[in-house]
Write a protein that binds this DNA or RNA. Structure first.
Lengths: 175, 175
DNA sequence: TATTGTTATACTCTATAACTATA
DNA sequence: TATAGTTATAGAGTATAACAATA
């Protein structure tokens, strides 16, 4: 297909010494080649840029970057279990445990042993957790507005739909 | 379009104890709430799903997941320096060094001290590096086709453009 | 037998700060 | 003074495997 993108076949071969140009002015001088047209690479770059911006925005909110999503899900689904939470965001339960322990120690969530199935912990937000979450939600809203501005408001719905399709299509389930 | 997914505003409040339903069948039963509509969260989930799929696809290619992009850029820009490479993908030079050392030790790239500026290393692909890259490129092409299929071929250009806008708009430069 | 949550362990990716050698 | 590359170190984020408790 296209994928070949801007392979202008300049340079006429890989032996052409790039040093000849000798630019050193921080201008984006590098040719990404077919990488610049790759969906995966650009998805990664965009995600990484967006995530860093989110961290900058929430950096003073006294919480590690990745924890906002967990608090938010517990808030929306009070009493869900750790395993359910893990499945919801596609992470192993063992990746969830230490995070939840820290959130509990900091008094942001509460774990309750379920009476009907004593293997599971149900998860609940505390008052403090609710309070912190509302602060984070405001930051997240600002972040979302910035992203929306970047892509253009009229593209929001489609963009979101495409991201969702990728998640569905590439997830471990459809291996 | 559809995009709204499952934000049905059920539950009618966060106090409703989810335990009542007591489902345990791995079906996606969790309500992501406003998270499900957040650009940042969905970007992260899509990227992570896509990256895992890429790792599955290249897992037997004898190379760590993140290295393909570096090899590809060195191929397209023979003789570029480590700092330039870092800037091209938005990573600190100290994040680049160990990767490049490993690639050199494995005989995939060559570092040459530049004569005109003896501080810099210029980077070059070896024969082996070129060979491995061509294998990886084939995998990458397959991966790209899978992603394209997920979003729909007609959306490719727009999607790519939006990802690029995010990268430009949110990058550390426009802080 | 299967699942939940925990633990031990390890790997990937990334950054900051301090260093050297150059410029 | 400023930059290129290295090193030491650390911190997120993630996973696999083995385990005890429970189903």
């Amino acid at each position: 297909m296209e994928l070949v993108m801007d392979s202008k076949v300049d340079e006429a071969g890989s032996a052409a010494p790039r040093r000849g140009r000798y630019v050193r002015d921080d201008s984006f001088e590098i040719d990404l080649g077919m990488l610049g047209d790759a969906l995966g690479f650009n998805l990664r770059m965009a995600q990484s840029a967006a995530f860093r911006a989110f961290v900058r925005r929430t950096g003073d909110a006294t919480l590690k970057p990745g924890y906002y999503a967990l608090l938010s899900i517990v808030d929306t689904n009070p009493g869900l279990t750790q395993a359910e939470l893990g499945r919801a965001i596609g992470r192993d339960k063992s990746s969830i445990t230490p995070v939840l322990c820290e959130l509990e120690q900091r008094g942001l969530i509460e774990k309750r042993r379920d009476a009907r199935d004593r293997r599971v912990n149900t998860l609940w937000l505390t008052k403090d957790g609710t309070r912190l979450l509302s602060v984070l939600r405001e930051k997240a809203r600002e972040h979302d507005r910035a992203l929306e501005q970047a892509i253009g408001r009229e593209n929001r719905e489609l963009f979101l739909a495409l991201l969702l399709r990728i998640r569905r299509h590439m997830s471990d389930n459809n291996r």
